[in-house]
Simulated assay, not measured.
Amino acid sequence: MVSHVGYNSDNDVNLSAADHAVAGAVSGMITRGLVQPLDVLKIRFQLQVEPTSKRGGGLYHGVFQSMLKIIRTEGVRGLWKGHVPAQILSITYGVGQFWSYAVLTKAVNDVTHGKTQLPAVCGGLAGICGTLVSMPCDVARTRLVAQGTPKLYSGVLDAWLKIVRHEGPLSLWKGLLPTLAMSAPQTALIFYFYSGLFGLISEFIGNVDDDVAPWLSASVLSGSAAGAFAKICVYPLDVLKKRMQIMGFEEARKQFGKVVVYENAWKCIISITREEGLKAWFKGLWPSLLKGAASSGVIFVSYEAVCSGFAHLYKGAASDSDH
C-alpha cells in the first residue's frame, strides 16, 4: 500500500498539485460537516473563564451537559453555530495545506533524488501556508460561535465588515502568532505521525482485503492516531489563540460567565495561569481530542479516497489511449 498524501515516487500515478488541492478541499468539507458540534463545544470550553468541572460555577462542565445546554437554549442548530465560516475555513485550509505539502514534498524528492521526503518539515510549512490563507475565516468562525443573543454578527460577511470597520483589517488575522506557533508544529506532527504510522499499519494489514481500497483501514487508524497525538502536544496554544481572537468582543460574552480583558498575548498567558491555574490550558481537551482524532481520520481517508479516484481515472484514461 502506498499513500497518496504528498509526492511519492512509488505511486503508479503521481497527481498534480491541482489534484491535491481539490482532494484537500473535498476532505476538509466532509470532515467539517461531521465534527462541527465538537468544535463548538471545544470553543465554548476554551473561552469559559470559570473551571469546567461540575462544581466550578461555569455554564459548561461536560460534553453531554454542554450539548444538552446548547440544544435547550439555542436549539439543535446551536451545535452547528458558525458552520458556514467553519466550512470556508476547512476548505481553504485543506486546499492550502495539501497543495503546499504536495509541492514541497515533490521539491524535496527532486533535490534528494527520492532519498527522503521530510514529512515533518514539509508538514510544518504546509501548516503555515494553510493558516495564512484561512485565518480570516477562523476569526469570523470564533466570533460567531462565541456570540450569544442578541447577535452582534449576522453572518460571515457581516462579521468581516464589522471587524474591519471597528478594529482594522489586521484584526482578521488576530491571534496569528499563537495560531502559527500552534499550526506549524501540529501539522508537522500530524504529517510525521501519519507517514510513520501509515507505513507500519500498512505492513501489518497490507495483505488483508488488498483488492478493495487498500488505503482505507491504514488511513483511518493512522490519521486518527496522528490527530490525537498532535493535538495533545499543541493544545495550550489553541486555548491562547481562542482567547486572543475575542479581544475587543468581551462585552458580547457576559451571558456566558465572567469576562476578562487581555491587553496582549503575554498578559493573557499570565492571567490565565494565575487566575485559572495550569489546568485551564487544557480546557476543552476531551471534545478537542475526540474532534482531533475523528477529523484527522476522516480528512485523511477522504483525501486518500479522492486521490485514489483521480489515480484510477488517469490510469483508465492512459490505458484507453494505449489501445
Rank of each mutant, 00 (worst) to 15 (best):
L240M: 15
V164Q: 12
N264S: 13
L89W: 05
H4A: 04
V76Y: 09
G175M: 03
V121Y: 09
H4S: 03
V145P: 01
R32D: 07
P178D: 06
V49C: 03
L221V: 15
E203C: 11
A86L: 08
A280V: 00
G316L: 00
G199P: 04
P85C: 04
I299G: 08
L118T: 02
S53H: 10
A218L: 00
V212G: 06
K242S: 14
P287H: 10
R274F: 10
K315W: 02
L200W: 10
L79I: 01
S100M: 14
G309N: 05
A218E: 10
R72G: 07
S308R: 09
A226E: 02
G62D: 03
T92K: 05
L176D: 04
M67Y: 01
Y314I: 00
I299S: 11
R253H: 02
G75R: 06
A317S: 07
H20D: 04
T142Y: 09
A18E: 00
R55A: 15
N14I: 05
A86M: 05
T142Q: 10
L152T: 14
L176R: 08
Y192T: 14
Q117W: 12
I70T: 04
C268M: 15
L34G: 06
S9G: 11
S171V: 12
G316C: 05
S90T: 00
I70H: 02
T73D: 12
V301A: 01
N11R: 13
V220S: 05
G206W: 10
K42H: 11
F310H: 03
R165N: 13
K174T: 15
K174I: 15
L313I: 00
S321D: 05
L79H: 08
L221N: 07
A265R: 03
I246Y: 13
G284V: 09
V133Y: 07
I272C: 13
D12S: 11
I201M: 06
S302A: 14
S154H: 12
I270M: 08
A305E: 04
L197F: 13
W266T: 12
S9C: 11
S171R: 15
K315M: 10
L132S: 02
D238Y: 15
K258T: 15
D211Q: 09
E203K: 06
L278N: 10
E250T: 03
G96L: 09
K291H: 12
Q117M: 14
L240Y: 05
R243F: 06
H312Q: 10
S100V: 11
K69C: 07
G316H: 07
L189S: 03
I88A: 07
A120G: 01
E250M: 14
K174Y: 11
P136K: 02
P236H: 02
T142K: 02
W266K: 10
Q186A: 13
H312T: 11
M67A: 02
G257D: 00
D211F: 06
E203F: 09
F193M: 05
T187A: 03
Y60K: 02
V133S: 09
K279F: 14
L144H: 05
E74G: 08
E250P: 08
N8F: 08
G94M: 09
A228M: 14
V298P: 05
P37I: 00
